[in-house]
Design a protein around this nucleic acid. Sequence first.
DNA 1: GCCAACGTTGGC
DNA 2: GCCAACGTTGGC
Length: 155
Amino acid sequence: MARTKKAPKITKAPKPSAYWLIKSEPDVYPWSQLLADQETRWEGVRNYEARNNLRAMKLGDLALFYHSNKGKEIVGIARVKKTFYQDPTTIEDWSVVDIEPVIGLKAHVTLQAIKEHSTLAEMALLKKSRLSVGPVRLAEFQEILGLARTTLPEQ
DNA sequence: GCCAACGTTGGC
DNA sequence: GCCAACGTTGGC
């Protein structure tokens, strides 16, 4: 019987279905820690809109990693590694996802820079400043990558 | 169901 | 440290 060639193992992440922005205070969990961990559970979200955004994330979706309070800048790109499940730190109805780092930005994109670009004026980051997990449009995501002088690694 | 009081986020 | 924005709680 002829051997059939096995299909190559799929190692690449699926194409993102959507883009997001997640906030973290660098004093609590900085980008450098995600790089060190290589994977983390995004827990502690206690806001319904943010939770619903977590639940809408698909495997392979990309998220801008924003440092709030200190820095106030986007510093990296993360990828959804595991879609939502019950937040194990509570018995209440909250969710988490697992993320992994994709790439650090060559140039950080500050809140100030975002405010200065009219194409980014509608970003949820600006419109809903207290939302810790928010959506990002493709055009916004691309604009941010451009400002960051960063290209995504080949998938 | 309204809304005042309160707590939290996060920029400045 | 201040405070605006805004989500949540609880009395009525």
